[in-house]
Amino acid sequence: MWTGTPLFPESASTMAGRVDALYFFLLAVSIFFSLLIAGLIVFYAIKFHRHDPNAVGGVIHGGMVLEVTWTVVPFLITMVIFVWGASVFFAMSRPPDETLNIYVVGKQWMWKFQHLDGQREINELHVPVGRPVKLIMTSEDVIHDLFVPAFRVKADVIPGRYTHLWFEPTKPGRYQLFCAEYCGTRHSGMIGQVVVMDPSEYQTWLSGGAPEGSLASAGAKLFQDLACNTCHRPDAQGRGPVLEGLFGNTVQLQGGGTNTVDEAYVRESILQPAAKVASGFQPIMPTFQGLVTEEQLLELVEYVKSLKGLPQVQTR
């Protein structure tokens, strides 16, 4: 029964070593203070054990030096841990500039993955080794949480917004993927695997199947089907803003303020067009809430992202 019982998780991402190093430091601090306290208690309990039932203790009310010491020393130690933990967290929160982006939609009780080239997977995620991967995630229903213990990363997957998580796998293999935020009846069945592959194998896998074409091309079709193109025209003659070259830029908003065009802004503008209207346009766009699924939204977002080629014609 003991064989096959690991006591420490596998490390398979660039982040794992950094998290583990902090973990071992904290383990050392904890063991030191636990042994110190436990040792003192046992030692005092034996050394000063009350043998005479009428004995009373010595009259010692306190000592300023000790009080200051055991306030300042723990304070300094915790500040070291704070800075260390913060620096690891910064690294986790800031993906590199060039990442392989994959979209994730969580729903009760499965994980859906959409690759940019059009591959779709359920409960299995194929990624190449040695390349930073960024997951852009949302949920169709309740809050989920994507957790890959071997990578030491985790992030909530929240309905109504996009959250991000990035990792760089360091060894090929299959790694468990869990939902870590309680999401209802089959929460513990909302599991899957991350398949980390050699780049060449990954290329083979990629070319293996994408019958519907890339995510952006699916978005382009949807853009036509939903008649978005009647108002969002590349020639600036439409009633809505030109979308070409828009992604990643900053737009002026009606009533002041600016907003960076990211995935969340595109999504919001489709579902709640009146929330942040670009300056110079009327809030006439109808809402597409309930007309498009989260997966279709991702296709549209990816399409808008892909509209880069044309020169900037919109004056700002």
Partner: peptide, 22 residues
């Protein structure tokens, strides 16, 4: 003491990411 010290693991935000919800 053990409960408090393991609280430090959870307060260290980069480490909390791995151990929270577990």
């Amino acid at each position: 003491t053990i409960g408090g010290l393991t609280g430090l693991f959870l307060a260290a935000v980069g480490l909390d990411v791995h151990v929270t919800d577990t």
